[in-house]
């Protein structure tokens, strides 16, 4: 039993950090704010080359042959760097090796998104079907009402772009119709897809929660008021301590969920993954909000990027469905 990163996992995290620092620096990604094409094909291919998408694909299928635990390490780093794009869907698509549409998902030459087919609301009104990064997508995974997966090409989809998406780095479109698509995989595939979504979205969120905590702590050490750093005031200190607790608890939960997915005899993956996603999403939102508070007026400016973490956290949390449903999944298996 060892829940610290292995040396290989540390090295992997280092590789991803280097790519994030080079290709996804805050300055660089922010140049694409508000544009429909936030995903740069070259950058995406660079992520592919580093194994971000093929990490958990078996070696004989052309992948790296590592586990979800390694993927979680990678996705925590991507989250910390606020790397935009349909990372989770593309990673999981690379594992659906029997679908021809996804051939290039693993190496990052195909960009794949995901969407859950919405149900009618109680009044019969259609719930708007919102897709992220549509202009960058080549194909899409659709989670159907029965929970099963299908895939479709995004070539002929009819959609209206949303003029002002909440997260300027996650362009959104409303689909006017959603074709059936081709079924892919079976019920087990669908269950693994949901678990993977929970774990990797959770990992992004855990990384984001850690990032907004660090931003607040750095600022609190620097910013002076009343002749001393604001971080010496206990009211500020305690906000920071609570942020660290949330980030660390979320990361531990995500890591254990990922290891459980790799070693299913060690626990209940469904419960671990749902619980980790729940806590990580909440931590990402709460830490971003708290970080804004610690930054004072600066935190409310467009310039300081903390708000981007808050908005991304909202995007990711919404992709998990209602958080209450995650809690009920845990409760039912407790």
């Amino acid at each position: 039993m060892d829940l610290e990163h292995s040396l290989d996992q540390d090295a992997l995290a280092g590789v991803v950090r280097a790519i994030v620092a080079g290709r996804f620096s805050m300055e660089r990604i922010r140049r694409r704010e508000g544009t429909p094409l936030v995903v740069d094909p070259d950058d995406w291919a660079a992520l592919g080359e580093a194994g971000v998408f093929s990490l958990t694909v078996a070696e004989d299928e052309g992948g790296v042959g590592l586990g979800m635990a390694d993927a979680a390490v990678v996705f925590e780093e991507l989250g910390r760097g606020l790397v935009p794009g349909p990372l989770v869907a593309s990673h999981l698509a690379a594992g659906l090796t029997d679908s021809p549409l996804f051939a290039g998902a693993a190496d990052g030459t195909t960009v794949v998104g995901a969407v859950t087919r919405p149900r009618m609301s109680d009044t019969g009104a259609r719930v708007p079907l919102i897709v992220e990064h549509l202009a960058s997508l080549d194909a899409m995974i659709v989670v159907g009402h029965d929970g099963l997966l299908s895939v479709l090409s995004t070539d002929d989809l009819e959609a209206e772009p949303i003029a002002h998406p909440l997260d300027p780095l996650t362009p959104l479109s409303v689909l006017t119709s959603l074709p059936e698509g081709d079924p892919v995989g079976d019920r087990d595939t669908a269950i693994r897809f949901t678990q993977g979504t929970h774990i990797l979205t959770g990992a992004l969120c855990a990384g984001m929660a850690a990032a907004t905590c660090s931003m607040a702590v750095d600022y609190a050490k620097e910013r002076q008021q009343f002749g001393r750093p604001i971080g010496s005031f206990q009211a500020v200190k305690h906000l920071c301590a609570d942020m660290l607790v949330r980030a660390e608890v979320a990361r531990a939960a995500v890591d254990v969920a990922a290891v459980t997915a790799d070693q299913p005899d060690t626990g209940d993956t469904v419960r671990a993954a749902a619980g980790a996603a729940l806590l990580a999403a909440e931590a990402a939102i709460a830490n971003a909000k708290t970080s804004i508070q610690v930054h004072g007026g600066m935190g409310f400016t467009w310039e300081v990027p903390v708000h981007l973490y808050l908005m991304r956290a909202r995007v990711l949390a919404s992709s998990l469905g209602p958080l209450g449903a995650l809690a009920r999944t845990v409760a039912a298996r407790y």
């Binding site: 619980g275 729940l278 806590l279 809690a327």
Partner: peptide
């Protein structure tokens, strides 16, 4: 159930 599941997720996380 929501509240129980949330507490359960937190306990699992602290065991992690």
């Amino acid at each position: 159930a929501d509240r129980i599941g949330h507490l359960g997720a937190e306990l699992d996380a602290l065991w992690a």
